[in-house]
Design a protein around this nucleic acid. Structure first.
Lengths: 210, 210
DNA sequence: ACTTCTTTAACATGATTATGTGGTTGGTTG
DNA sequence: CAACCAACCACATAATCATGTTAAAGAAGT
């Protein structure tokens, strides 16, 4: 028997979901609330397997609720439930440890499947949400990084700059004269199209040169 | 009619999948190959809607095949198909623009659903894979690092430093005296435990303060 | 009321950086 | 061979930065 808790402000939907879940073999709604204001106590008291959490709620919203619950219970499965698959909420939700993210338009039969999946450690999500997640993921990792085509020595100097070394320290570290360090750095600035140490360091991070 | 292409080295499975897909209403296998050695030409020639790509193949493996196809066709849907949901491959696949990642143990009916989903822009994935993706995602983004507890004004100064502004420019931008900028920056250095602009900028990136 | 923190500001000094101009060497390539 | 470039070095000057000390107004909290 999968024990479910429900957070949903719309009374009709709350009732509807409760009836759907209670009316299904192997599922049981322990409790349903209209906001997350006391989510921590409620979850602690009822110890559900799965929490269905609406995102758009007055008072403490779903993301806040998610955080609150996660802070005291890292194991309970939390399925976010929402009308829109907007980027920001999806990101927030999964960064904060949601176990799934499904749209309200999901047909009832699928919903029950999703709850089971979540309970057994899966991460159910609506296809459109999954697409977004993948996009975010690949956009995080795409090292567009223009080449700038720094020489080895220049890269080395830049690395030391990033590590907070002064010209003098770089000279010491690399066994070259400080004036040579200057030459290298001037060249680096040219290649990166910047004209200060900070900008070079920032660019090194942004374009993943280091 | 969804046009499918198949890359799978195991002859039995290749045949089985072909029969399954061809035997289903609305699906059609255009071609099936046992490796990705000529994937680019093949995909260009057949112009499928969806490619089912096994990962473990002799010769050019599935990840390589994915990259090759993606480099010439950003739109074709590519579903990765594999026995194991091992972390590394999942990561590789989605970083390189796979549209879904499903396990071979997926029941046939589900497989067809997944193909449809992929074709309509979804990102179908087996629950266990989705779980991994979420884990990777939240692990990437959670170590926001120490707080350092910079004041609003200090954050603003740091942001401008990162953008390559000099003290003078910051003073101008923020309508304060240059000596005030100095004060702020000294405070920032204390809080971040650094003692140069470059280090502060580097730390701002590393700890995602900006 | 007292303390603490933030934000503002000034004055001073030595260190570091940015920029310019010049040069030598050694390896690569057309 | 000549041209090129990376890597090296030097001298000079102005700008910027790092650091110290000091201080006053206002907000926040005890």
């Amino acid at each position: 028997m999968i024990k479910v808790m429900l957070y949903e402000d719309n009374p009709q939907l709350r009732e509807g979901l409760t009836m759907l879940i209670n009316g299904s073999e192997g599922f049981e709604v322990l409790a349903a609330f209209k906001n997350c204001d006391h989510a921590v106590q409620e979850v602690s008291a009822f110890k559900p397997d799965v929490v269905l959490m609406d995102i758009d709620m007055p008072g403490t919203n779903g993301i806040e609720g998610l955080k609150k619950i996660r802070s005291v219970d890292p194991d309970v499965k939390i399925l976010m439930l929402t009308v829109f698959d907007d980027n920001k909420n999806v990101f927030q939700a999964i960064s904060n440890g949601a176990n799934g993210y499904i749209l309200k338009k999901t047909p009832p039969s699928r919903l029950l499947e999703y709850i089971s999946e979540a309970q057994t450690g899966g991460a159910p999500m609506t296809a459109s949400v999954a697409t977004q997640v993948l996009k975010m993921f690949s956009s995080m990792n795409n090292e567009k990084g223009e080449d700038y085509n720094l020489s080895d020595r220049e890269k080395q100097v830049l690395q030391l700059l990033v590590d907070g070394y002064s010209y003098k320290m770089i000279a010491g570290e690399m066994f070259i004269a400080i004036d040579t360090v200057r030459s290298h750095i001037k060249k680096i600035y040219e290649k990166l199209h910047v004209n200060s140490k900070s900008e070079a360091v920032a660019k090194a991070f942004k374009d993943k040169i280091v």
